[in-house]
Amino acid sequence: MKKTLLALAAAAVLAGCSTPSSQAPTELEDYNSIAEPDVVWSKNVGESLTNYLVPSVVGTSVYAAGDNTIYRLDAETGDEVWSFETDAPIAAGVGSDGYIVAVGTAKGELVVVDAEGKKLWSTFLTSEMDAVPLVGNGLVVVRTADTRVTAFDAMSGQQRWRYQRQAPSLTIKNASGMMFFGPMILVGQSNGYLLGLSAEGRPVWQALISEARGITEVERLVDILGSPMLSGDLLCASAFQGRLVCMNAQNGQLRFTHDVMAMTPPAADERFVYVGNTASELYAFDRTRGYPVWKNEKLKWRGVRAIVPMSGVLAVGDSEGYIQILNPESGDIIGRTQLDGAIVSPAQSYEQGAIFQTEEGEVAFIKVQ
């Protein structure tokens, strides 16, 4: 049986070092208040059963899920547009292209509704979903814990294709994702590879992000973290306790790579690429040449998971629900607020801010005035 690790149990595992249970989070220090974040709106959608619940922002709508309910919220106000209840707690989602909304339940069922909250179809999968479903191009693509990537017709639910590869015996539990990239579907693999599948489900490209190292199974974990990051002509990915790799999005040529013992997927703005390591130390690299710009150690062991640039600053969420606002030029903390519950899933950019979701189910729109 495939084994999994909870993110907080594997979050800061370093070769030869102790686990996060023995590491006290760094105490937050006073800071020079320059850019305080504003909680524009907040709504509780219910607790997260897993670390695979991520809000989806399409147009002026936020699709979020918690407990056994899917919500469509107005992105400007947080008002509920509609809700839909599933037969079991929601374990993975939300995937949406604005027309189709898809989630996976704890019973291994894929549930698909339309933009008005009416059920279109559902089907039971071969295993529980371990990634946020990818919706678009007339497809709903899911990845399950038995390593199968399966594509369904978005309207009818008919299976289009399936791809499977052998999985390692141990993986981490993180909000993995997939991404459309030209004619391909990019899928992060648990063996440290970023895989490109054709529209027909055939493997057509792959890139090694990080190789397994060490002796124990834990030391050899190299799961791709979150979704690949596409920013202009730059495509980046990171692997758990492994490397950050950035390449030219047009031809796949390597731009730069850094061994950072990664714990977060990469994020980028016009000038820098950001990533956090297993100790919650944050790095910024020049996006053109890849040289290091700064390293922030003031959030060490605080379980940093969500990193998102917004409105000229960098927002960082941690396992105590704090959102730190950093100066992207220096990495200095210049603002702070707190939500209810740990922030373990990626934040989603919206307008001049970002949408965050906590384990306790708080979904909040954060901006810096």
Results as ranks from 00 to 15, higher is better:
residue 1 M to H: 12
residue 3 K to H: 15
residue 5 L to C: 14
residue 6 L to R: 12
residue 6 L to Y: 04
residue 9 A to I: 07
residue 12 A to W: 05
residue 12 A to E: 14
residue 13 V to L: 13
residue 14 L to W: 10
residue 17 C to L: 12
residue 17 C to F: 10
residue 21 S to T: 09
residue 22 S to W: 07
residue 24 A to S: 13
residue 25 P to N: 11
residue 31 Y to R: 02
residue 32 N to S: 13
residue 34 I to Y: 08
residue 42 S to L: 10
residue 42 S to P: 05
residue 43 K to C: 08
residue 45 V to P: 00
residue 47 E to H: 11
residue 48 S to Y: 00
residue 49 L to E: 13
residue 51 N to I: 06
residue 51 N to Y: 10
residue 62 V to W: 00
residue 62 V to I: 05
residue 63 Y to H: 08
residue 68 N to D: 12
residue 70 I to R: 00
residue 72 R to T: 02
residue 76 E to C: 02
residue 77 T to D: 14
residue 80 E to C: 04
residue 81 V to F: 09
residue 84 F to N: 03
residue 88 A to D: 15
residue 88 A to P: 05
residue 89 P to M: 08
residue 90 I to P: 01
residue 91 A to Y: 02
residue 93 G to C: 07
residue 95 G to I: 07
residue 97 D to P: 13
residue 97 D to T: 10
residue 98 G to V: 04
residue 104 G to Q: 04
residue 110 L to W: 01
residue 115 A to S: 13
residue 115 A to D: 08
residue 125 L to G: 04
residue 125 L to E: 12
residue 128 E to H: 10
residue 131 A to H: 02
residue 131 A to Q: 03
residue 133 P to G: 03
residue 138 G to D: 03
residue 139 L to V: 02
residue 140 V to Y: 01
residue 140 V to C: 05
residue 141 V to S: 06
residue 142 V to L: 10
residue 147 T to I: 02
residue 155 M to N: 09
residue 156 S to K: 11
residue 156 S to D: 10
residue 156 S to A: 14
residue 157 G to I: 00
residue 159 Q to T: 09
residue 159 Q to R: 13
residue 160 R to Y: 01
residue 161 W to H: 01
residue 164 Q to L: 08
residue 170 L to S: 12
residue 171 T to P: 05
residue 174 N to G: 14
residue 176 S to H: 15
residue 181 F to E: 00
residue 182 G to V: 04
residue 184 M to L: 14
residue 190 S to V: 04
residue 195 L to N: 03
residue 195 L to M: 12
residue 196 G to T: 04
residue 200 E to F: 06
residue 202 R to A: 14
residue 204 V to Q: 15
residue 208 L to D: 12
residue 218 V to L: 13
residue 219 E to H: 14
residue 220 R to W: 04
residue 224 I to Y: 00
residue 225 L to C: 06
residue 227 S to M: 13
residue 229 M to I: 07
residue 237 A to L: 14
residue 244 L to G: 01
residue 246 C to G: 06
residue 247 M to D: 09
residue 255 R to G: 02
residue 258 H to P: 03
residue 259 D to G: 07
residue 262 A to M: 09
residue 263 M to F: 12
residue 265 P to D: 08
residue 265 P to Y: 06
residue 270 E to R: 06
residue 275 V to E: 04
residue 278 T to W: 02
residue 279 A to S: 12
residue 283 Y to F: 15
residue 285 F to L: 06
residue 289 R to C: 04
residue 292 P to H: 08
residue 294 W to M: 02
residue 299 L to C: 11
residue 304 V to D: 00
residue 310 M to C: 07
residue 311 S to D: 15
residue 312 G to I: 08
residue 313 V to T: 08
residue 315 A to V: 09
residue 317 G to N: 02
residue 318 D to C: 05
residue 318 D to P: 08
residue 318 D to N: 11
residue 320 E to F: 11
residue 321 G to K: 03
residue 325 I to S: 02
residue 326 L to S: 03
residue 331 G to P: 13
residue 332 D to H: 11
residue 336 R to D: 05
residue 339 L to A: 15
residue 341 G to K: 05
residue 344 V to E: 03
residue 346 P to N: 11
residue 348 Q to C: 01
residue 349 S to F: 03
residue 352 Q to L: 14
residue 355 I to R: 01
residue 355 I to P: 01
residue 356 F to H: 12
residue 363 V to N: 07
residue 363 V to A: 05
residue 367 K to T: 15
